[in-house]
């Protein structure tokens, strides 16, 4: 299964697959950020692979690396019982990734959560708002430079 996915992806997107990694049986593809939507579409629509369920989408803050953020996609093929991880790298200055909501509608809330926690914006997202924190909150809590106990005064309490 692993070889099949890899060869198919390399054949279809010769320049977009940057790195392949297999750690503890989890197959990971590092792909180019501009072609993530096409790759997802291909993986979903290919009859043999049919990765039809997006299980998870999240961001990772790598702090010191050149491309600071990563967006990680976990997709599952219900037919083949196989799970694959896709990763894209995002620079802090150009914090924009294409939204995959057109391919997987479930990505909607996951992307909102990633936006809320990391400040990564998703292009063509239908409704990009904060997921958890109040609308007037200005910071991105899961970035590594945000302290655990928060920034004093950033959230208001009602008067006693």
């Amino acid at each position: 299964m692993k070889e099949k996915i890899e060869s198919k992806l390399r054949e279809k997107f010769p320049n977009a697959i940057l790195e392949v990694n297999d750690f503890r049986g989890d197959l990971t593809f590092l792909v180019d950020k501009n072609s993530i939507v096409e790759i997802c579409k291909f993986l979903r629509d290919d009859e043999e692979l049919s990765f039809d369920l997006l299980v998870d989408l999240c961001g990772v803050d790598r702090a010191k690396r050149k491309d600071r953020f990563e967006v990680v996609y976990h997709i599952v093929s219900l037919k083949n019982r196989y799970r694959v991880r896709l990763k894209v790298r995002v620079d802090e200055k150009d914090c924009v990734v294409d939204s995959v909501t057109s391919v997987y509608p479930t990505a909607n809330w996951h992307e909102r959560e990633t936006y809320d926690m990391f400040g990564i914006t998703f292009r063509n997202h239908p409704d990009l708002r904060r997921m958890y924190m109040p609308e007037e909150f200005e910071y991105y809590p899961l970035r590594k430079d945000f302290p655990l106990m928060g920034i004093p005064g950033s959230l208001q309490l009602p008067k006693r």
């Binding site: 750690f23 999240c58 990772v60 799970r83």
Partner: peptide, 20 residues
Amino acid sequence: VGEIYSSVENPKGELGFYIV
């Protein structure tokens, strides 16, 4: 050093942990 995703079938659905 590495990253894994592991999930179980919880009563509500698939509960997964992605650890880097």
